[in-house]
């Protein structure tokens, strides 16, 4: 029984890691930037959702608003900031770490703005769904309706992205623009605009992650930082280029963490994450699903 309980917990947290990893992969594919600001974008969207529930007392209204806000935020960060950065910083020793630094700066900036508006104290973003686990007979599994929402939301996002990427012209343009930007441009794709859509998708995915995971804990300006780290580890494990890899990386990490938590102890989980990551990368330096002959960014 404990085994199944642990597995369920792992799937639920793995689903969230997958969403975060997906957001990072979407931005990486289109811009070659690891977007550390993703945590603060997601948290800001969640704060917007929180504000809406406070006004309307309805979680189901706040959810789509938060997602739309997340998409708008992602797209405006690309327009106002990353576009300019990519033009400005091209060479010199800083070129390689400039995007990392810039997004870390954005992370800090958004978090302090959130702190200035809402304060740094813990808030409770409540949902109508129960946080108590389902009961079968006399056994209560640690899997609540809220966990079910988390898994369903992740699955829905994956299906939507999957359909968009596989079956629409937009998806084809997105894949082309990330695979070979110059050639895609020659073929008439507006790479800049497509890139922006990638950022919007990423912002929306992050907002979903924030809005469904936060009710299970508390909301504070840096409450999603650890989620970002897990998501990043999952994305790197899956090979930063691959959407499927991000999802599988997230699930592997979530289930792995749950079992380590259950059978080894709570404080070594992230260290175990480090060792899992190192082993995966030493065997496949570009991740599980990354292209071995990736282009030189």
């Amino acid at each position: 029984m404990i085994f199944i309980d642990t597995l369920l917990l792992g799937i639920s947290s793995g689903a969230i890691y997958s969403l975060m990893a997906l957001a990072l992969v979407l931005v990486w594919r289109s811009t070659r930037v690891v977007n550390f600001a993703q945590a603060s974008q997601a948290v800001l969207s969640t704060y917007v959702g929180y504000e809406i529930t406070m006004r309307t007392h309805n979680y189901w209204v706040s959810l789509p608003v938060a997602i739309l806000f997340g998409a708008a935020l992602g797209s405006s960060i690309d327009l106002l900031f990353m576009f300019y950065l990519a033009k400005k910083v091209r060479s010199g020793p800083i070129a390689e770490i400039a995007p990392v630094i810039a997004t870390l700066g954005l992370l800090g900036l958004l978090q302090s703005i959130i702190g200035l508006i809402w304060g740094n104290s813990f808030l409770q973003y409540s949902t109508p769904l129960s946080g108590k686990g389902f009961t079968f007979g006399n056994h209560t599994v640690p899997f609540s309706p809220q966990n079910l929402l988390i898994v369903l939301a992740t699955a829905l996002v994956l299906i939507v992205f999957g359909v968009v990427f596989k079956f629409t012209n937009l998806g084809l343009a997105l894949r082309a623009a990330s695979f070979q930007p110059e050639i895609a441009q020659l073929a008439g794709i507006r790479v800049g605009r497509i890139r922006n859509i990638g950022w919007a998708f990423a912002g929306a995915a992050g907002a979903v992650a924030g809005a469904v995971i936060t009710p299970t804990s508390v909301l504070s300006p840096n409450s999603l930082d650890l989620l970002l780290v897990s998501g990043f580890i999952a994305a790197v494990m899956g090979g930063l280029d691959s959407l499927v890899g991000a999802v599988i990386g997230g699930l592997v990490l979530g289930i792995g963490f749950a079992f380590i938590l259950q059978y080894v102890g709570s404080s070594v989980t992230f260290l175990a994450g480090f060792f899992i990551l190192v082993i995966v990368l030493l065997i496949r330096p570009r991740g599980l699903f990354g292209h071995q002959l990736g282009r030189h960014a």
Partner: peptide
Amino acid sequence: RLSGPYLAGTTLALAVGLPSIADQ
């Protein structure tokens, strides 16, 4: 063996994970 973001991810995991050894 690792390039750019892969190295960043590995070292990030180390920075988050290592301090918790002290409790062990």
